[in-house]
């Protein structure tokens, strides 16, 4: 029971004055994290740990639901009924994953309404990758292969994240996402092996999605403002550059099997390091897209806001009916 003290509630600031008490809790918390124990919702945790988690989980949840848009863009035009079913199921999964993640964030005391509000008002971010447009059917494949591939590379270590509800959500998500990347790869393979027009469509999509996918791992380690603390807290378990390298190493042989070229003339195998060397990433583009100057930032958030606003009367109706007929039995988390 070396870490028992970490598993305590902090009754709303009761320890605020008691610095000795707080220090004891902090030591116990650190020990729990160091011992690879999971922190659970009602345990004491540093405010900054809580805030970092809320920010990260919310951003992750927002990415799932904004990420529905570029793919939903092709549901009505999917070129075969099999592909249409796969794509619908995938976009549905993304809504589901958003829900799991909002649930995890809510265990930290922040309601979904508040998180959505922050998304809609631009106070919380989502992954910049979804600010790029899906211009052809092949983009659906490129998103599956590269974007989901990068996401999985990022997410697998999160299954061991120190915060229990987040780790559990990630386990479920990773399990469900295994089909997302495979369907993307298969889609691109069919195009690559198809007519010359289809092959060109696939190559064009890979050309456009490759670099933004590499940016998904975030800025280089020495410029990443949150990384060090998150690593120490075991919210994050691998560095941005480490994950990016792993992703490149995985993708290069996969691209060869696809019969497609990755758009990087500097890409080469480094025998000594046992990794692929790759060219310089255009971080100016990354920061610009993050700031709101990407091709679809405006469109994505506008659609999200519109869906939410236009759905308000529906949510109100549900709530009003519940009050009339059951007196409203639900409630905030205990």
């Amino acid at each position: 029971m070396t870490t028992a003290a970490a598993h305590r509630t902090d009754p709303a600031g009761a320890y605020g004055e008691d610095t000795a008490g707080t220090a004891e809790f902090e030591r116990a918390f650190d020990a729990a994290v160091a011992a690879d124990e999971r922190i659970e919702p009602r345990d004491w945790m540093p405010d900054a740990y809580r805030a970092t988690l809320v920010r990260q989980i919310a951003q992750h949840a927002h990415s799932e639901i904004i990420g529905m848009q570029p793919e939903a863009n092709w549901i009505t035009r999917a070129p075969s009924l099999r592909r249409k079913a796969i794509l619908m199921a995938k976009v549905q999964d993304e809504a589901g994953h958003g829900l799991y993640l909002y649930s995890a964030a809510e265990t930290l005391g922040t309601g979904r309404d508040e998180l959505l509000d922050k998304l809609h008002s631009g106070r919380q971010k989502y992954s910049s990758i979804f600010n790029y447009p899906t211009l052809t059917w092949a983009d659906v494949g490129a998103i599956g292969w590269l974007v989901d591939g990068a996401a999985i590379t990022n997410q697998v270590p999160l299954c061991r994240c120190s915060y229990g509800p987040y780790a559990r959500a990630m386990v479920r998500i990773c399990k469900e996402e295994s089909f997302h990347q495979r369907q993307g790869y298969e889609l691109l393979l069919a195009l690559s092996n198809g007519t010359p027009e289809q092959h060109a469509m696939a190559q064009d999509a890979v050309d456009r999605w490759w670099w933004p996918s590499l940016m998904m791992f975030g800025p280089p380690d020495d410029e990443s403002q949150h990384s060090a603390q998150s690593m120490a807290w075991k919210i994050k378990r691998r560095s941005n550059d480490e994950l990016r390298q792993r992703f490149v190493d995985i993708c290069v042989p996969q691209a060869e099997s696809l019969g497609l070229t990755l758009p990087d003339p500097d890409l080469r195998w480094d025998e000594e390091r046992g990794h692929y060397e790759f060219g310089a990433i255009d971080w100016t583009e990354f920061w610009e897209v993050l700031k709101g100057n990407g091709p679809c930032n405006e469109e994505r958030i506008t659609q999200r806001r519109r869906a939410h606003d236009e759905g308000a009367w529906v949510r109100e109706a549900g709530a009003a009916y519940a009050v009339k007929h059951t007196g409203g039995t639900g409630g905030a988390r205990a």
């Binding site: 639901i65 529905m68 848009q69 939903a72 549901i75 009505t76 249409k84 619908m88 199921a89 976009v91 549905q92 809504a95 589901g96 958003g98 829900l99 909002y102 659609q303 519109r306 869906a307 236009e310 759905g311 308000a312 529906v314 949510r315």
Partner: peptide, 19 residues
């Protein structure tokens, strides 16, 4: 119903309509 994807009034309903 597929046209609703990304436009539903609440996230739970995205999942229901897609089902």
């Amino acid at each position: 119903l597929g046209e609703w994807a990304g436009h539903a009034p609440v996230l739970e309903e995205e999942v229901a309509l897609a089902n």
